[in-house]
Simulated scan of single mutants.
Amino acid sequence: MSDKLVAYKDLSADAKKQARLDFMNFYIRQLRLDNLEVVSANASDEDMANINHLLEENQYLTIDKLVELAERMVPNLFDAVESSLDMQYHTDGTTAESWNEWMQKIHQGLPVED
């Protein structure tokens, strides 16, 4: 694995596909947990609404099947969402840190109400 880290937009087509599939798994799991606040703070409401509509219409499918469906139907929307997030990638499309670590780091930086 290369030590060079790049933005999503700078990945090759194959690396983007790998990164997108990994992100779809994370996104769908977080949607099911109603835990997309961090993603929605950075991504387009319209893109997320269209993704969520597709996923919720087909919520009876397994996560693997939802990923297949999303990759077939709305990969461009996931590209837009993923491009809006501050994640760095290795050139093979793997993330510099896991999506869960990324989200946890952002949550830790948020102010806490008394």
Rank of each mutant, 00 (worst) to 15 (best):
Lys17Asp: 12
Glu97Asn: 07
Glu37Gln: 11
Gln30Lys: 15
Gln104Cys: 04
Lys65Glu: 11
Tyr27Leu: 15
Thr91Glu: 12
Asn52Gln: 12
Ser2Gln: 15
Ala49Tyr: 04
Ser12Val: 12
Glu97Lys: 13
Pro111Asn: 05
Ala80Ile: 00
His90Arg: 10
Ser40Arg: 01
Asp79Trp: 01
Gln108Asp: 12
Gln30Ser: 04
Ser40His: 03
Glu82Phe: 05
Tyr27His: 12
Asp92Phe: 07
Asn76Phe: 04
Arg32Asn: 03
Met1Val: 12
Trp99Glu: 02
Leu31Ile: 03
Leu85Ser: 01
Asp79Leu: 07
Asp22His: 03
Glu68Gly: 02
Glu113Cys: 09
Asp114Ser: 08
His107Ile: 09
Ser12Asn: 09
His90Ala: 10
Asn58Leu: 09
Asp64Gln: 05
Asp45Lys: 02
Asn76Gly: 07
Glu97His: 07
Leu11Trp: 15
Leu55Gly: 11
His107Cys: 07
Thr94Asp: 11
Met87Leu: 12
Asp86Asn: 03
Ser40Lys: 03
Val38Glu: 10
Gln30Asp: 02
Asn58Arg: 11
Asp45Pro: 00
Lys9Arg: 15
Met103Glu: 13
His90Val: 07
Ala43Thr: 04
Val39Lys: 00
Val81Glu: 04
His53Leu: 09
Asp3Ser: 14
Asn76Lys: 08
Ile28Trp: 10
Met48His: 09
Asp64Phe: 05
Ser84Gly: 00
Arg72His: 06
Lys17Cys: 05
Ala19Asp: 15
Glu56Phe: 06
Tyr8Thr: 05
Arg32Val: 02
Asp79Ser: 04
Ser44Gly: 06
Trp99Tyr: 14
Glu97Trp: 06
Leu61Val: 08
Asn25Thr: 13
Lys9Gly: 01
His107Leu: 14
Tyr8Asn: 06
Lys9Ser: 13
Arg32Ile: 02
Ser40Thr: 06
Pro75Asn: 07
Val38Asn: 03
Leu31Tyr: 04
Met73Leu: 12
Glu101Gln: 14
Leu85Gln: 00
Ile106Pro: 00
Leu55Val: 10
Leu61Ile: 08
Met73Gln: 13
Asp3Phe: 14
Asp86Lys: 01
Leu5Arg: 15
Leu69Arg: 12
Val74Ile: 14
Tyr8Phe: 15
Arg20Asn: 10
Phe26His: 05
Glu57Arg: 14
Gln88Asp: 10
Glu101Val: 11
Glu82Val: 01
Leu55Gln: 07
Thr94Met: 04
Leu5Phe: 15
Asn58Thr: 09
Glu82Met: 08
Ile106Asn: 00
Gly93Thr: 11
Asp79Tyr: 03
Thr94His: 02
